[in-house]
């Protein structure tokens, strides 16, 4: 039995300690906004926040996450109104949407560390997240727009 703190709620998980955090979040706790894309840390679809840092949940085990504060897309903002989410809606960024939880989680953590990024910094920060609908042009705008909203707030 392990206890995980996700989105401010304690969850008791009955799974072996080496279970991938991604599977715990998605398949055991059914927080399915976090997606499986590659399983090897190269697509970013599984991105969650671990103590505020964007991490690839497919690269972590349940035992790594015990005691940490975990945030998934479902908990990014209590009303789904995080500036990144607002920017994503305003600019109509998602197409199929499958990669977008990971994109938004990555962008939100990035903007916490760099509140007024340059375009080059945005591209560098977001290059770990693949989007096969190729919404890249809008993602770049979206990060810029979210940064602007965070500054205005």
């Amino acid at each position: 039995m392990a206890v995980l703190n996700i989105n401010g709620v304690s969850h008791v998980v009955d799974a072996p300690g080496d279970t991938k955090l991604l599977w715990v979040v998605r398949e055991h706790l059914r927080l399915t906004g976090t997606k499986f894309g590659c399983g090897i840390g190269l697509c970013g679809a599984c991105t969650v926040h671990l103590n505020g840092e964007a991490v690839r949940s497919c690269q972590l085990q349940l035992s790594d996450a015990e005691g940490a504060t975990i945030t998934t897309i479902e908990g990014l903002d209590p009303k789904g109104q995080h500036p990144v989410q607002k920017a994503w809606l305003e600019l109509q960024i998602p197409q199929c949407g499958y990669c977008q939880s990971g994109q938004m989680m990555n962008a939100a953590a990035f903007l916490e560390s760099n509140s007024s990024p340059s375009d080059a910094e945005i591209l560098d920060a977001m290059q770990g997240n693949i989007c096969r609908c190729s919404t890249y042009a809008r993602i770049k705008q979206g990060v810029r727009r979210a940064a602007q909203m965070m500054q205005e707030a």
Binding site: W88, G97, S101
Partner: peptide, 23 residues
């Protein structure tokens, strides 16, 4: 007119359900 896409709101808060999300 470019009305906002009806499927987007569920795709920004993690509630959109894909095949892989079925139980």
């Amino acid at each position: 007119t470019s009305v906002p896409a009806l499927d987007i709101p569920a795709k920004i808060n993690g509630t959109a359900r894909y095949g892989i999300d079925v139980f």
